[in-house]
Every structure is written in structure tokens, then in C-alpha cells.
């Protein structure tokens, strides 16, 4: 029980110190989990992180579940995950309450009009970075164009696109491998 509490608090600390996305979390995990607690090795952490990126869900959450499970079984996985999201729950609830209260003030509206421009730029940068890593040949470029057009022009659920792209990926890889073997 005490072990689980320490696990929870450690991951809550990681949650507080992570500003931004999953990548911001890696150096903090290295310090807290590998160096301070010795719950995983550098290599294990790299593995968990890689798999956390290519499994569904938020990378930070996935990595926390991995480490928690490795250390203390299924209960550990659940507790570590709850720990990492706990600070968000408190901080965002407080902030959202405050922002809702003040959202009608003129200067708050003006400030957020400026912030929205910045959000556009940040998302554009994220698309560019992800694109460089994910569009690696003509096939992935094709998938990108088809899904982008469909997502912009239709109101279909993203679930449809994810399933379609996953199936396309498997079929393409099988065909490409067969093509390579035939040569």
C-alpha cells in the first residue's frame, strides 16, 4: 500500500513537471524513474516511450502505465496512470473555472484573440514536424492526401479514418514486402 502511494506521488510529480507534450516528459522520467527511483533502466524507458508513441492514447499516460505495471503489476499500472493525470485535473479545473468567470471582460477577449493566432502557429509547426517523420514515401504521401481531403471536406468520424489508414498500412506493407521478395 505504501509502495503504491509512493508510485502515485512520484507520477503526480512527473505530471506537474511535464509542460507540453509527451516529449517534454522524457528528461523528467529519466531523472525521477531511472536515476532517483531505479524503477526502470535507460533502455527500458526508451522502449516504453517508443511503444507509447505508437499505441493509442496520450504518450505520457501510456509510458506511466508501462512503468507502473512493470514495478507493481496491474494495480501499479492503474495507480501510476492516475498519478500522472491527477495534477492536470486539479490545475485545469481551477483555471477553467477562473477563465469562464472572466471570459466576458474586453481585455481577456483581446488576449485570447492573440493567443488563438499563436495556437494556429503551434499546431502548424506540429503538423510540419509530424509530417516529416510520417510521410516517408509515395504511399504514405497518398494516405496523407486522401485522409486530409476527406477530413477537411466531410464530417465523418475520425474513427473511420483511423481504421481505414490502419488497414491500408497493413495491406501496403504486405504487398511491398511481396514485391521486394519477387525482385
Amino acid at each position: 500500500m505504501k509502495q503504491l502511494l509512493i508510485l502515485f506521488l512520484t507520477f503526480a510529480k512527473v505530471g506537474v513537471m511535464t509542460f507540453g507534450g509527451g516529449y517534454a516528459m522524457l528528461p523528467i522520467l529519466q531523472r525521477e524513474i531511472v536515476e532517483n527511483k531505479g524503477w526502470a533502466t535507460e533502455e527500458e524507458l526508451a522502449d516504453y516511450f517508443a511503444i507509447g508513441q505508437c499505441t493509442p492514447g496520450v504518450i505520457a499516460v501510456n509510458t506511466a502505465t508501462f512503468i507502473g505495471r512493470k514495478r507493481f503489476g496491474i494495480a501499479g499500472g492503474v495507480v501510476a496512470t492516475l498519478g500522472v493525470v491527477f495534477p492536470s485535473l486539479i490545475i485545469i479545473s481551477l483555471l477553467a473555472g477562473v477563465i469562464t468567470q472572466f471570459s466576458e471582460l474586453a481585455w481577456v477577449k483581446n488576449a485570447f484573440a492573440g493567443v488563438r493566432v499563436c495556437v494556429c502557429v503551434l499546431i502548424a509547426n506540429a503538423v510540419w514536424k509530424l509530417g516529416k517523420k510520417s510521410i516517408v514515401d509515395k504511399w504514405t504521401a497518398g494516405i496523407f492526401l486522401v485522409i486530409a481531403a476527406a477530413a477537411i471536406l466531410t464530417d465523418w468520424s475520425p474513427v473511420v479514418f483511423v481504421l481505414f489508414a490502419g488497414v491500408c498500412g497493413v495491406v501496403l506493407q504486405v504487398l511491398l514486402r511481396k514485391g521486394a521478395a519477387a525482385k
Binding site: 505508437c54 494556429c120 499546431i123 502548424a124 506540429a126 503538423v127 509530424l130 509530417g131 517523420k133 510520417s134 510521410i135 504514405t140 504521401a141 494516405i143 496523407f144 492526401l145 486522401v146 485522409i147 486530409a148 477530413a151 477537411i152 475520425p158 479514418f161 483511423v162 481505414f164 489508414a165 490502419g166 488497414v167 491500408c168 498500412g169 497493413v170 495491406v171 501496403l172 506493407q173 504486405v174
Partner: peptide
């Protein structure tokens, strides 16, 4: 294979959100 297809699709959907 699935992730070979999923990664560009994810990028495309974020573009649509943009």
C-alpha cells in the same frame, strides 16, 4: 504495417483540425 499507415493519417487529421 498498421502504424506505417496510421502515422500519415494522424498528421492529416491534425492538419484538418488546423
Amino acid at each position: 504495417g498498421a502504424f506505417y499507415g496510421l502515422r500519415p493519417a494522424s498528421t492529416a487529421m491534425i492538419l484538418a483540425a488546423l
